[in-house]
Simulated assay, not measured.
Amino acid sequence: MPRPIKPRFVSAYPVMAAFVPRGIAVTGEGLISVEEFEAIRLSDFEHLDQESAASMMGVSRHTFGRLLAKARATVADALVTGKELRIEGGNYEIRGRGMKRRRCRGGGGGRGKE
């Protein structure tokens, strides 16, 4: 039996939920989870090193690197091939609110949608 995935900490739910190419026909969609979005935000927008960003999310540096690599690959694919990019799902908790908020994206490892 696989080990359960711990929720990752994110600072807030993304303000934008999707990005759509303008002026061309959409060729599909790319999905990134909220925690993958947070990894991009911390690394590329906040310019944090992976160790600091991983600590903020409550994950190992290796796990952070995997989240970041997967998110970057999905974003690059969407930009190059003209796909809609959506941010949704995942397994996360919003940091510093006292209440927990979790989202689960289905399709992987037998996990269903909540």
Rank of each mutant, 00 (worst) to 15 (best):
S43M: 02
K113V: 11
R111E: 10
G58V: 08
L67N: 06
G98E: 11
P14K: 05
G65I: 00
R22M: 09
A12W: 13
R97I: 15
A53E: 10
L85S: 10
A78K: 09
F9P: 06
R95H: 08
T81A: 07
R111Y: 04
S60K: 03
A18M: 05
A69I: 05
S52D: 14
K113D: 06
M1Q: 14
I87C: 12
P7F: 02
G90V: 01
M57I: 14
A73I: 05
E36C: 06
F19S: 13
T63G: 09
I5E: 03
E88T: 13
T27I: 02
E36N: 14
V34W: 02
F37V: 08
G109L: 04
M1P: 01
A17P: 03
E36S: 11
A71E: 06
E93N: 11
I24Y: 05
G107H: 05
G58A: 09
R111Q: 10
E35P: 01
I87R: 02
V75G: 15
A78Q: 13
G108E: 07
R8I: 15
E35F: 03
P21H: 08
E36W: 00
G65S: 14
M57C: 12
T63P: 01
H62N: 08
K113Q: 04
M57W: 09
E46Y: 11
R66C: 11
R72P: 01
I94S: 03
A39T: 12
L42C: 12
L42N: 08
R105Y: 06
R105H: 14
V59W: 12
A39W: 02
E114C: 11
K100T: 12
M99D: 07
G58Y: 13
L68E: 12
G89M: 01
A17Q: 09
E88R: 10
L67D: 04
T63E: 14
S33I: 06
G23H: 00
R103P: 05
R66F: 11
G96Y: 00
H47Y: 01
G110H: 07
I40N: 01
P7C: 04
Y92A: 14
R72L: 06
L68I: 15
L67A: 12
E88D: 08
A17S: 12
A69M: 09
A54P: 15
H47R: 04
H47I: 00
V10F: 10
L48P: 00
S11R: 08
I5T: 10
S55V: 07
V80H: 07
V34L: 07
M56G: 12
K100M: 07
V80L: 09
A25D: 13
Q50I: 05
A39M: 04
K6D: 06
L79K: 05
H62F: 02
E88F: 05
G90H: 09
G90I: 03
R61C: 07
K100F: 09
G89D: 07
Y92R: 06
V10M: 01
